[in-house]
Design a binder for these strands. Structure first.
Length: 594
RNA sequence: GGUUGCAUAGCUCAACUGGAUAGAGCAGCUGCCUUCUAAGCAGCAGGUUCGGGGUUCGAGUCCCUGUGCAAUCACCA
C-alpha cells in the first residue's frame, strides 16, 4: 500500500538521481519516531556508497525528488541520515476508504497449505493447571493465526491416557476408593482422580520411609516399595488386556474426560481430532525396523536399538528397548507418520514446553534421516515455563494453580469490577453473566498471551486480575466504547461514505490511527511466521491505545463537515473491526457494551 | 561437568530483526468527568540494557569473554 508506493518511488529516485537500480525489497521503510514530523522514515546510511554524498545531502536530494515527482508526499525533513516523510491528508483518507471498502481486509487468501497444530496434551491423572493454560491458549491462538494467514488448519489433542502414572491413581482408587464417583463426591471427575493420584504419592512415600528406617538404601527403597511394584504390575495387566483392569481404566478415564470437556468448554477451546496414546503407543516399531534396514539405526549387543546423531551434533539416542518395548521416541516417530497419513500436512506444529527441546530436536533429526519428505515442516513451538512469585509450581508442595479455580476467580473478579462501575445495571442477568465470562477469560488469555512464547514468564495473581492498563479488558473496553459511537452514529443516520477530497486537514491522531490500521496485515503475517500470538496481542493493544488518544482529543459528533464526520465514523468502524478480529485470533471475544 | 536458552525502569513486559534521545503497563506524584463509556486521557519522575572487550557510519540486538539464573543430558514421559 503506501509503504510499497514509497519504496517504488524511492527506487525510481535512485534510478534517476544516481543511475542506480535498487529493488524495492532492498529499501526498508520504518515508522518515524514520534518526536519527528512524518510517518515513514527512509534510512540513507546504507546507500552512501551509491549516492556518493553526505547523509544529509543525499537525504535532501531524495526528499526533494519525492516531493516533486509524487503526489502523496506533503513534506519531508532530514535529521542526520534519516529522511522523514510526511504524507498528504488526502492520501490517508484514500487509504482508509480503500481499506473500509475491502471486506476481506486483514485475512489472507488460502495458500493451499495444510498445517496441523498439536497442543494441550494432558495426562488423565490430574486436572489442568496454569501451565496447561499457557499451552492451550498458545496452541489455540496459533491455530487461529495460521488459519487467518490462509492455511488449512487442523487442531489436535494427543492425550496421555496410559502408563505407570495413570496406574498409580487407579491403584489408589482401587484400594481406597470405596466406590466413590464424581457424583457422590460432588466433584469434577478430573479433580477426583487427581485426588487419588496424590493419595498414591502419600502411600508410596510412607512405604519408602518405612523401608529406609528398616535399613534399606533409599534408592533401592524407591524401586522396592510395594505400591510402585503393584502399579507396574497393573500396567502389565493393562497391556495384556486384563478385563478388570481395563474396565477400571475406562471408568476412571471417562470421568476425567468429562471433567476436561467442561474445562475446555469454559475456555472456549475445541479440537478437530483427539488422539489417545493408548491407541498410538505401539506405533513406531515398524519405523525402527525400517531404520535398521536403511542403516540409520543400529543394534547394540543386548538387542536395544539406537540412532547415532553425533554428526548432527547430538548424542546417541535409544529408539527401542532391549526387551522390544517402545519408548517415548519410538511412539513419537510413529505418531508423526500417522498424523501425516491422516492429514498430509505441509507443516506440523508441536506446542510443548521448552523442557523438551532436546527431544524434539532429536525426533526431527530422526525423521529427516528416515527420509520423510515432510520432516522439514515439523516445528516445535517451544514455550517457557510459567513461574509463580513463590517460584516454580510444584504439585507435591501444593503450589499448583488449578485451571478451574483460576477461571472461576477471573469470572468473579470481572463481576466485582463491573458491579463497582455500575455501567450495565439495565442489562439482563444472563447477558451480564455472559459478559463476566467474556471479560474474565479475556483478562486471563491476554495476560498469558501477551508475553513472547519463547520466554519464561511470571504469573503474578494480583496482576492477572488487574483490568486496567496493558490488559485484555482495556482492549475490550475500547471496543465497547467504539460500539457506543457506532450505535449513536447509526441512530443519527450519519452517512457512511465520504469524499476523500473533502475531509480536509487531519489531526495527527487520525493519521496515527490510520497508519496503525495499515499495519495490521504485517502484524498478522509476522505472528504466523514467528508462531507468536504475542505479536498480535501487542498490535491490538497499540491500536486500542491509539484509538483512545484519538477519542479523547477529537470529538466526533461535533463535526459539521459531513464528509469528515463520516470519515471519523469510518475510522471508528475500522478500528472496532480490527480489534474484534485481532482479539478473536487470540481466542478472546469483545463485548458491545461493558 | 557438556549442551541449549535467558539477563532491559522498583516490578511485569516491548523495542518492526543492526538505526535517531531504549518504549508501554503496574506501583509513586500532578491534572482532566454539566459535551460521544474515566475499565479512559494528558503530564512528572524513574535506565551504565548483568560486567568486560571487539566488529562499523551506527550495537539492547552480531562476535569473544566473565558472572548469575533456568532447562536438559534415563532402556521416564
Amino acid at each position: 500500500m503506501l509503504e510499497q508506493r514509497i519504496q517504488k518511488a524511492i527506487s525510481q529516485a535512485f534510478a534517476e538521481l544516481f543511475d542506480h537500480s535498487l529493488s524495492e525489497t532492498e529499501i526498508s521503510i520504518q515508522p518515524t519516531r514520534k518526536e519527528f514530523a512524518g510517518t515513514y522514515t527512509f534510512v540513507v546510511f546504507p546507500f552512501l556508497k551509491v549516492t556518493k554524498g553526505k547523509p544529509e545531502d543525499s537525504g535532501n536530494q531524495i526528499g526533494e525528488w519525492l516531493a516533486k515527482n509524487t503526489d502523496f508526499i506533503k513534506g519531508f525533513n532530514v535529521v542526520k541520515g534519516f529522511l522523514n516523510l510526511e504524507l498528504t491528508d488526502v492520501s490517508w483518507a484514500i487509504v482508509l476508504q480503500d481499506i473500509s471498502g475491502d471486506e476481506s481486509y486483514g485475512s489472507l487468501e488460502d495458500n493451499g497449505q495444510k498445517v496441523m497444530v498439536e497442543f494441550s496434551s494432558p495426562n488423565t491423572n490430574k486436572p489442568l493447571h496454569l501451565g496447561h493454560l499457557r499451552n492451550n491458549f498458545l496452541g489455540d491462538s496459533t491455530a487461529r493465526i495460521l488459519a487467518a494467514n490462509g492455511y488449512e488448519v487442523k487442531k489436535v489433542n494427543l492425550v496421555n491416557d496410559r502408563g505407570v502414572h495413570i496406574c498409580k491413581s487407579m491403584l489408589a482408587y482401587q484400594k481406597m476408593g470405596n466406590g466413590e464417583t464424581p457424583e457422590s463426591a460432588g466433584m469434577k471427575g478430573d479433580h477426583l482422580i487427581g485426588r487419588y493420584y496424590v493419595k498414591f504419592d502419600q502411600m508410596y512415600k510412607a512405604e519408602i520411609n518405612a523401608l529406609v528406617e528398616s535399613g534399606m538404601d533409599p534408592e533401592l527403597a524407591k524401586k522396592e516399595a510395594p505400591s510402585i511394584l503393584e502399579a507396574q504390575e497393573m500396567l502389565q495387566k493393562w497391556e495384556n488386556g486384563d478385563k478388570e483392569t481395563v474396565a477400571l481404566w475406562e471408568k476412571m478415564n471417562g470421568w476425567v474426560y468429562q471433567g476436561f470437556d467442561q474445562t475446555y468448554e469454559t475456555m472456549g477451546i475445541k479440537f478437530d481430532t483427539m488422539y489417545k496414546e493408548s491407541n498410538t503407543y505401539l506405533l513406531g516399531k515398524e519405523l525402527v525396523e525400517e531404520g535398521l534396514q536403511k542403516g540409520v539405526f543400529f543394534k547394540k549387543e543386548n538387542g536395544s536399538v539406537w540412532v547415532d546423531l553425533t554428526e548432527e551434533g547430538m548424542d546417541e539416542k535409544l529408539v527401542l528397548r532391549a526387551d522390544g518395548t517402545a519408548v517415548y521416541m519410538t511412539q513419537d516417530m510413529g505418531t508423526c507418520d500417522m498424523k501425516h497419513k491422516n492429514f498430509p500436512f505441509d507443516k506440523s506444529v508441536f506446542v510443548v514446553g521448552n523442557e523438551q527441546d532436546y527431544h524434539f530436536k532429536v525426533l526431527f533429526a530422526i525423521m529427516k534421516k528416515l527420509g520423510r519428505a515432510y520432516a522439514d515442516g515439523l516445528y516445535h513451538l517451544s514455550y517457557g515455563m510459567v513461574d509463580l512469585p513463590s517460584g516454580k509450581m510444584k504439585s507435591r508442595e501444593g503450589t499448583v494453580v488449578d485451571a478451574d479455580d483460576l477461571l472461576q476467580e477471573m469470572f468473579n473478579t470481572a463481576e466485582k469490577h463491573t458491579r463497582e462501575l455500575g455501567k450495565i445495571e439495565d442489562m439482563d442477568d444472563s447477558e451480564a453473566q455472559k459478559l463476566y465470562k467474556v471479560l474474565g477469560l479475556g483478562a486471563l488469555k491476554y495476560f498469558l498471551l501477551k508475553v513472547d512464547p519463547k520466554k519464561r514468564m511470571l504469573f503474578n495473581p494480583q496482576e492477572s486480575i488487574e483490568f486496567q492498563g496493558h490488559t485484555g479488558p482495556f482492549i475490550q473496553y475500547t471496543h465497547a466504547r467504539i460500539s457506543a459511537i457506532l450505535r449513536r452514529g447509526k441512530s443519527l443516520e450519519i452517512q457512511t461514505s465520504f469524499d476523500s477530497d473533502k475531509v480536509g486537514e487531519l489531526n495527527t491522531r487520525e493519521v496515527d490511527l490510520i497508519f496503525k490500521i495499515t499495519e495490521y496485515p504485517k502484524a498478522l503475517q509476522e505472528a504466523a511466521k514467528e508462531y507468536s500470538p504475542s505479536i498480535m496481542a501487542q498490535y491490538v493493544y497499540d491500536l486500542a491505545k491509539d484509538y483512545n488518544g484519538f477519542y479523547q482529543e477529537v470529538p466526533i459528533f461535533n463535526e459539521e463537515n459531513k464528509d469528515k464526520l463520516a470519515f471519523r465514523i469510518a475510522i471508528s468502524n475500522m478500528t472496532a473491526k480490527l480489534i474484534k478480529e485481532g482479539m478473536s485470533l487470540l481466542g478472546i471475544e469483545v463485548p458491545e457494551r461493558m
